[in-house]
Design a protein around this nucleic acid. Structure first.
Lengths: 242, 242
DNA sequence: CGCATTTATAGTCGGCATGACTATTAGTCA
DNA sequence: TGACTAATAGTCATGCCGACTATAAATGCG
């Protein structure tokens, strides 16, 4: 029996509320996820998404930022992207007790040191496509995060969240190609990005020379825009699912 | 202090977990919301989104379906759309205690009777654009639901969830116009919808005559498709926000 | 009965975004 | 110096989309 108004202290079951983080980055041209190895049952020895309890005086968002800082060691939040994914609440998802988790997806530019403090459970970057079965329902959460990020690349400027402050258009294109798993035509990608006002702005007179072969590329910064109109759709493999 | 693994029974604060529903429908050409009037403090006399506690043995989704049935009186879930919006967890959002709510957006075709059982707190349909300040953070939840639905109309076939099993293209267009608050060009809308395979399929030899003036319109059913490619974008009021 | 009104449906036309492709430039490496 | 590599420039045809005109099929009023 639920009472729509006027809470009775004994009318509800208390739940544990946690946050779980799907932290993604691009390393060496591959999509990678930050994972921790579980030391105890259940799922001992399995990889799991980093996460933890929401404390009494913080929101889920605050808990997520805190956990993100703890696990990655990043100190300043600037340039990071963190967004709520959805909440997972199936009664049996944790065999020990009733745990409701608010999942987040986070995007980091490059590897910001594989780990943070002197914690026992080391967080590690693993290749996204090589993660075995994860603990709990974390496979599902991770898949949802990947799907969400891929979709948001289409109609937002989110891709720059994977890039360092200054980047080349080739690097930006790699973000799309790596997340979507599809090669893109370089001139067309370039044309589209530059034609979208506020997506990127060129750094005057700078070029990346970093040991690369070929013509040095111009450097760009993220512009002020957040949305892409019209969107940059994935190559249509016919009527796409979802 | 949070322990990433091995839960300590006293390491976390228990939360109350609820669901809140933003139930939308189209009545008389306007967007309407299902609301309940609060009888007790806090926010006594104010309108609030229907909702309730998540029970010990159910997921948030199951709780949302249960509440939806309780408040609207609908018996069969077919044709209804219910999707998780996001979770609201700010510590102060309920002055009485720590309540984390998982918000859902639901879409109904037409009015399925304003109410259900013989409950005291009657749920009522109110015009979306005429809702005053709601209780708690429900204004924010409702705004988020509206934004989400508007966005999903662009790239999914969600609009049919507002329509009865058989509908005319004019009615479908009204869904878009009402949710977006923008008039659309009728021939162009028609062309786009019919050109999208699986969006709608014509009911053979049926036409709606219902007291209307003008040429009777052909009837359509929702097709099998769920996604729209390419999307049906809102009229671009210049670089649109979010 | 006829004509204005209303709504659905059909079709046209130009612009622009996009996919596919070619060409040129500017570097590195052997 | 010359292959190789990658960035950038430009071309061209297709197709989608916004704006618009035209026709068809019903109602209702005089």
């Amino acid at each position: 029996m639920t009472s729509p108004e006027g809470y009775d202290k004994y009318a509800f079951e208390p739940f544990a509320v946690t946050v779980d983080l799907a932290v993604l980055t691009l390393r060496a041209g591959t999509l990678q996820v930050l994972l921790v190895e579980r030391g105890e049952e259940p799922y001992a020895g399995r990889w799991a998404l980093p996460g933890g309890f929401v404390l009494p005086d913080e929101s889920a968002e605050e808990a997520a930022w805190r956990e993100l800082a703890e696990e990655t060691g990043v100190t300043d939040a600037s340039g990071l992207h963190l967004e709520q994914l959805r909440t997972y609440s199936e009664p049996g998802r944790d065999p020990r007790m009733r745990v409701v988790t608010v999942a987040f997806a986070a995007l980091l530019p490059d590897p910001p040191v594989p780990h943070g403090g002197g914690d026992a459970a080391q967080a590690q970057w693993l290749r996204f496509d090589a993660v075995g079965p994860l603990a709990f329902d974390h496979d599902r959460i991770l898949a949802d995060a990947h799907e969400r990020v891929g979709a948001k690349l289409e109609y937002t400027c989110l891709a720059t969240a994977f890039c360092p402050p200054e980047f080349t258009l080739g690097e930006l294109q790699q973000v799309y190609e790596t997340v979507w798993g599809t090669p893109l035509d370089r001139p067309n990608f370039r044309r589209k990005v530059l034609a979208t006002p506020g997506f990127v702005e060129q750094v005057p007179g700078a070029a990346r020379l970093t040991g690369g072969r070929g013509k040095p590329a111009a450097l760009y910064r993220a512009g002020g825009a957040t949305a892409l109109h019209p969107p940059l759709l994935r190559p249509t493999t016919e009527g796409r699912p979802r």
